[in-house]
Amino acid sequence: MKKSWLLIAIAILAVALVGAACTNAEEPADPDTQEPTETVDDSWSKVEARGELILGLDDSFPPMGFRDENNEIVGFDIDLAEAVCEYLGITLTKKPIEWSTMTMSINTGEIDVAWNGTSITPERLEAIDFTDPYTNSTPIIVTLADSELATKDDLAGATVGIQAESSALESVEKEPEVVESFAELRQYSTYVEAMTDLEIGRIDAVIIDSVAFYGDFQPNNPDAYKVLEGEFTPEQYAVGVKKGADALREKLNEALQAVKDSGKATEISMKWFGEDLVI
C-alpha cells in the first residue's frame, strides 16, 4: 500500500517536472524571440528565401477555407491569399492545423500566417500580431423561417447554439447580461452541427458569423432561415502573424492593399459572397 502511494507521488512529480520544464523553457524563449526582431527582423526574408508562404487554417470553415470534392483546400481566404502570394512572387502552401491552438502553431514556426476568417481579438493580440483588416464579420442571430423569435431580446429564455472557440463566441461574451438571459448557450465544434441541431429543433437559434451564414448556409438553403433583428459587436478579419514579425506583416499589408486596389479582391468577394465585403 505505502509503496504504491510513493510510486504515485513520484510519478506525479515526474509529470509536473515535465510541465515545469515546459514553462521554464518558454520563459527564456520569450526575450529570445523578441531580441532578434529588434536587431534584425528576418520574418520576410525567410519567407522570400523559401519562396513559399505557409498558411495555417482549419480546413472545415466554409466559405473561408474548406475542402472541395477533389479534396483540394479552397475558399475566399485561400483565393485572397493566392492573389497576395502572386503579387509577392511566392507560392502558397496550405497547412491544416488544429485551430484552437493556432497561436501556438504560429509561435512554434509551424506556419507563417493564420488566415482563415481570423478575427482580431484582444486576447489574440497578446500572443500574435495582425495585418490590416480586409473584411468585417458580424455575429448575427439565425433561426428557422417559421420561428416565433423576431429580435435579439426574444432570445431571453431560449437555447442558443454557437461554435466553440469562435470569434462570434468572444463577441457574444462581451455581453454577459445577454448570455445570462439565455436558457443555455450550447457550444458546437462546427457551425454545421449547430445549424443541424437548429433544424432538428433541440435549439432555438444559432449565433453565427455573417460571412459564414451568407457565404455558406443561406445560398444552399435560401428559404429555410430567418435572421433576427439585432446583432453583436462586429469583428474584423485580418491575417495573423508571429509577434514582432513586422517585415512580413508590412509586406502582407502592401500586397493586400495592391490586391484591393486592382479590384481583384472585389472579384474574389463576388465569387464567394455575391457581394463586395472587402474593406
Binding site: C22, E26, M104, E165
Partner: peptide, 15 residues
Amino acid sequence: ATSLVTSDFRIDAYV
C-alpha cells in the same frame, strides 16, 4: 482544458 489553452495560449491547462 482545450478552451483554456485557446484563450490563454499556453498548454499548461493540458498538464
